[in-house]
Amino acid sequence: MDAPPNPWLSWRYVENNWGEISDQLTIHTTLTLEAVAIAFAIAFPLAVLARNVRWLAGPVLGTAGVLYTVPSLALFALLAPFTGIGRTTVLIGLVTYALLVLVRNILTGLEGVDPDIIDAAKGLGYGRWRLLFGVELPHALPSIVAGLRIATVTTVALVTVGVVVGYGGLGQLMFRGFQSNYRAQIATSALLCVVLALALDLAILLAARWLMPWARRRRAA
């Protein structure tokens, strides 16, 4: 007796299950964006603090580094007993991982600003905040954008590990496909994951180009 067909890619699977697929895709996307946004909101002040208070830079990067080394499955396992099963646990885990990349890149960006430029701005009477947001931030943007891109792409991949606490977005479909040996489900969700990562990466790249017209002009010149 022939085994029933079990194709890797099947349009019928996508058609028949579009509701579920789009639900998980939405969860995956919003979870990623939320995690990166929260991580950025924490990372930026931390990086500025580490830049201004010299001796804090080591401990901040060190702690983030140790947290980054903790395996994702272990981190979700450590959180699950306290934050329960579901979205919160995954979100906290994702923020933790995005944090290191962001803090490191923001710090590198801020430290890479030419001291002469800062001197000039100070000489023009720029206050501390205006200096930060008007001069240093735009100069640090390339490094920050690079960090955001890495953080976003890794976060998309990490969301799938959320299956251990029942909230893995597209990982949920992958895992169910594994359990029932449903190739189309696994392949479709894996493809969507990679496509989502690339799409978000491209979106950040385009947003950055729009935000930094000067970089564009310099390259053209």
Binding site: A157, V163, G171, I186
Partner: peptide
């Protein structure tokens, strides 16, 4: 290195499991 960053480990594991490589 970019592709390996975008590819979830779980995706590779489940893809292998459903293929001839097995689990």
């Amino acid at each position: 290195s970019n592709i390996s960053r975008a590819m979830p480990t779980l995706a590779l594991l489940t893809l292998f499991a459903a293929s001839a490589i097995g689990f």
